[in-house]
Design a protein around this nucleic acid. Structure first.
Length: 202
DNA sequence: ACCCAGGTGGCCC
DNA sequence: GGGCCACATGGG
């Protein structure tokens, strides 16, 4: 997981911000727009007017919030690290995490996603799928991000590639098995199907 | 015409 | 410190 370029690491940050509570297909359209105009760059994002940024990321939803968060992040990187996010990623883990959490628009999942995927740091990413599936299959009984993350941190070797894979599996399970197919009474995994409000305990 | 998506910040009490 | 709510587009 090393050898990611500065640009690739920043691109992961942009993707992490844009994908907040949003389908990845919508984020991809926005990423293509940004790339088309070579805007996946802290300097260019920092200089771009809001309306232009907002228009480029529009398809990812919450575009006013997200364009603002992108710009603030880019300004922060330029001001403090000459636009290099790697300067943050290479800091001691808790220092890097705290710093990201202090930025507007960076919650625990966004910060951990960036540290894991761009920085190769051993932080387990807890998302909605992880919470939902983990609770339903009895891995844990909690909605708290920190508690759930601790569960994985003490249950698994602290290997970034394993965390990466495990997270991907939760997403795949949540996304591919559930939602798109109608609930089937005979399916032993039916309690994993359907999401959020539409799920009814039997 | 719903319901939902790999969250977060700002309120309120 | 928990419980709501706005934020917004695109796909099923």
């Amino acid at each position: 997981m090393r050898g990611l370029s500065e640009q690739e690491q920043f691109e992961i940050c942009v993707g992490a911000l844009l994908t907040q509570n949003t389908a990845w297909t919508n984020v991809e359209k926005a990423m293509v727009q940004l790339q088309r105009f070579q805007m996946v760059d802290p300097g260019k994002i920092a200089r771009a007017p809001f309306p232009r940024l907002a228009r480029l990321v529009r398809s990812s939803g919450y575009f006013r919030q997200k364009s603002k968060r992108l710009k603030m992040f880019a300004l922060y990187l330029n001001r403090n690290y000459a636009g290099k996010v790697s300067s943050i990623l290479k800091k001691p883990l808790q220092a890097a995490r705290s710093e990201l959490l202090g930025l507007h628009g960076f919650g625990p999942e966004t910060a951990d996603s960036i540290l894991l995927y761009a920085g190769g740091r051993p932080l387990f990413v807890v998302d909605a799928y992880t919470k939902r599936i983990g609770n339903r299959i009895g891995l844990f009984k909690s909605e708290d991000y920190g508690e759930i993350q601790d569960f994985f941190h003490r249950s698994l070797p602290k290997h970034p590639s394993l965390y990466n894979e495990c997270h991907a599996l939760f997403v795949a399970l949540g996304k591919e098995i559930c939602q798109t197919k109608p609930l089937c009474r005979e399916c032993p995994l039916r309690s994993l199907c359907a999401t959020g409000k539409s799920f009814k305990e039997e």
